[in-house]
Design a protein around this nucleic acid. Structure first.
Length: 269
DNA sequence: AACGAAACCTGCGCGC
DNA sequence: TGCGCGCAGGTTTCGT
């Protein structure tokens, strides 16, 4: 599910349900999701959840001594169930809170990752430290400086979380349509004004998507209620051969960096 | 150093 | 009906 708006939505729901509760047990069914650098997750037993934050697409579970860094990758989800409910297929890690709530990490493709670290190690964490700022906090100067010499497409650059943090394939497609930029245009050919338009479109689109609880492409039934409605706002993503709402030309689908890219050739020069 | 491609996994929908 | 292929909201690692 996860680009920045979906991740924030998940984090909000988890926070509403789990804050100030204590982990009383953990069951690891598929351990390959846990990073090699991670501390033993069992260190969390007895720890109370103090807060949940997000950085881009990462969810940070903030405990007393530790931070659990969770990334949903393509299909990770959290379900909160009763402790008595039978485990379902694809539930890989189970966190028990206050001996009654069973928080299940569910991931069909097993791409998600977990890393438990000491609080003081967050700053130097390999995954987190290299991330760019989220569009809301990113200055035009910083963004433009990172793309202005790049010999790769702006679409690829928007998916690079060390350049701008939080966009994924859906929102990158939508942002470039809103900013009227051809996704194939090379970073070095993007003007500062165009970079500003991209940044502004990113902020606007993400803000609406957050408000709508994210985008739901596949119809998941999630006990976390994570089924957003931003799909109703999509203008190009998944709209191949449909009419551009601005110029009536047909939306095209191409591959950039192996990812499906939808755009209007007329509107995005 | 920088860029593109492959790898990590599973399930679904489509065309023969 | 069954099989094979391509595809999926992401990131890391490998090769040139």
């Amino acid at each position: 599910m996860p680009e920045l708006p979906e991740v924030r939505t998940v984090a909000t729901v988890l926070k509403n349900n789990l804050l100030n509760k204590k982990i009383t047990n953990i069951e690891i069914i598929y351990s390959k999701l846990i990073s090699k650098n991670s501390l033993n997750l069992n260190l969390l037993i007895g720890e109370t959840l103090i807060n949940i934050n997000t950085i881009g697409k990462y969810i940070l579970f903030d405990f007393e001594k530790y931070i659990l860094i969770s990334h949903l990758r393509m299909e990770g989800k959290y379900y909160i169930k009763k402790i008595s409910e039978k485990y379902e297929k694809h539930e890989h890690i189970i966190f028990i809170y206050d001996s009654e709530l069973s928080v299940r990490y569910h991931d069909v493709r097993k791409f998600g990752t977990f890393e438990l670290i000491k609080k003081e190690d967050l700053i130097n964490n390999k995954s987190i430290s290299k991330l760019a700022l989220e569009p809301f906090d990113l200055s035009l100067e910083e963004f433009y400086n990172k793309i202005k010499n790049k010999n790769t497409s702006i679409k690829n650059l928007l998916l690079d979380q060390t350049i701008i943090n939080g966009l994924g394939n859906i929102y990158a497609n939508e942002v470039l349509y809103a900013a009227k930029i051809n996704p194939l245009k090379l970073g070095k050919n993007i003007t500062k004004k165009e970079a500003g338009n991209i940044l502004k479109a990113s902020i606007d689109i993400l803000n609406v998507a957050i408000k709508e609880g994210g985008t739901t492409i596949k119809s998941y039934t999630s006990s976390l209620g994570v089924s957003g409605t931003y799909q109703n706002y999509l203008k190009v993503h998944m709209k191949e051969n449909e009419k551009c709402i601005n110029c009536n030309n047909l939306i095209e689908k191409i591959k950039i960096g192996g990812r499906s890219t939808y755009y209007c050739k007329e509107c995005q020069k």
